Computed example of a mutant assay.
Amino acid sequence: MVNDAATLPASLPGHAWIEGRAEAIELRLLGPVGVDEDRWRAVVFGGGDWREDTDERPAPPRLELGTNLVLAGGLGARVLERASASPRLIELAFDRAGASLYAALYSAGRPIQYSHLEQPEELWSFQTVFAGRPWAAEMPSAGRALSASLLGKLRAKGVLVERLTHAAGLSATGDPELDAQLPLPERYDIPARTVAAITAARARGARIIAVGTTVVRALEGAALEHGDGVLRPGPGETALVVTAATQLRVVDALLTGMHAPSESHYRLLRAFLPEALLERAWDAALGAGYRSHEFGDLALLVPG
């Protein structure tokens, strides 16, 4: 099961006009709020760029409601709401909508970059071969290794590759308190075909393998939406945080990137394997030279 969300050019440098002064900021878009897309959710960073570690970036100026933002490419926005969880987390309205807005984003925006890389990457580097709707703030990176050739070989061996769309969010916000709440609520859309394939696989005793933690969150969050644990097709939004205490109702195994114990994604891995085993696997992977981070190596976690 793969996440076919395409990665947005979600990084927008610019300025906030505060008391007549232009204060440098960077917006990292999380995506629209609701189906009308007239409001967007974003995390605000202070001045600087991707070469600085997220946790070492300057704090952003405090953006009051109504603050005007001038972003890359002349794109304008206005702050509509500031979350109680952190002044960095805001909702805003852009000065354009629809195709005009997306044209501006793809013209002026950049994909979110990572300080461990030697040079900035282009947007195409952050896309999987099955990417579709531009929903992801950061790349659902576990799917990056699945080339068209490899997918073809899997299908030839009888492996069904089905998809859903999940708006993968940010891996870091620069605010330790907000980081502790990651992942934030994220939207998903599960096709009827995917639910039918999962039901059929269950009936014949086959395993459901999630490619990436976003797939786990979408499927398990959707199964809990109606309180009965039954997976249904359609769109939704999940606030589920998967931990060691989570009872997995849909997913049997996970193909995932190498996540360090300090990362929010690591908590989700505890739903699949005991803590002691995860620690041994992490230490062994580091000792063998495996790579972590967004463009790193992968691990297959199979409980039992």
Score class of each variant (00 low, 15 high):
Ile90Asn: 08
Ser125Asp: 06
His166Leu: 14
Asp189Gly: 09
Ser147Lys: 14
Gln127Phe: 09
Leu101Asn: 07
Leu105Glu: 01
Arg163Ala: 08
Ser100Ala: 14
Val195Arg: 00
Ala156Arg: 12
Ala192Asp: 08
Glu122Ala: 14
Pro87Arg: 06
Leu160Tyr: 02
His116Ala: 06
Glu118Ile: 08
Ile112Ser: 01
Ala172Asp: 03
Ile190Cys: 11
Ala99Trp: 12
Ala103Gly: 13
Tyr114Met: 11
Ile190Ser: 02
Ser149Lys: 10
Phe130Asp: 06
His166Asn: 02
Ala145Trp: 10
His116Met: 04
Leu101Thr: 10
Val195Asn: 07
Ala148Thr: 15
Asp179Ser: 13
Gly132Ile: 06
Lys157Asp: 07
Leu160Phe: 06
Ala103Val: 00
Leu105Ala: 01
Tyr188Leu: 10
Ala131Gln: 00
Pro140Trp: 05
Arg155Thr: 09
Arg187His: 05
Gly174Phe: 02
Gly98Phe: 11
Leu160Met: 10
Tyr102Ser: 11
Ser100Gln: 15
Gln113Val: 03
Leu170Pro: 00
Leu170Asp: 00
Pro120Gln: 09
Thr194Asn: 05
Glu118Gly: 15
Ala167Val: 11
Gly169Tyr: 00
Tyr188Ile: 11
Arg133Cys: 08
Ala142Cys: 08
Glu121Tyr: 13
Leu92Glu: 05
Gly158Arg: 15
Leu150Ala: 15
Ala148Asn: 15
Ala131Met: 07
Arg88Met: 03
Val129Asp: 13
Pro183His: 03
Pro134Lys: 02
Leu146Phe: 15
Ala97Cys: 07
Leu92Thr: 02
Ala136Gly: 05
Pro140Lys: 04
Gln119Met: 14
Ala168Asn: 11
Glu162Met: 05
Gly132Glu: 14
Ser125Trp: 02
Ala85Lys: 10
Thr128Ser: 12
Gly158Thr: 15
Asp95Asn: 10
Arg155Gln: 09
Glu91Asn: 11
Lys157Thr: 04
Pro111Val: 05
Asp179Gln: 13
Thr128Ile: 12
Gly169Gln: 01
Ala104Gly: 07
Ser125Pro: 04
Ser100Met: 13
Lys157Cys: 06
Glu81Cys: 09
Ala192Tyr: 04
Ala136Lys: 03
Tyr114Ala: 03
Leu182Thr: 03
Ala108Tyr: 05
Leu178Asp: 05
Leu182Arg: 05
Ala85Met: 04
Leu89Gly: 08
Gly143Cys: 11
Gln127Glu: 07
Glu186Arg: 13
Ala103His: 11
Arg133Gly: 05
Gln119His: 06
Leu80His: 05
Ile90Gln: 04
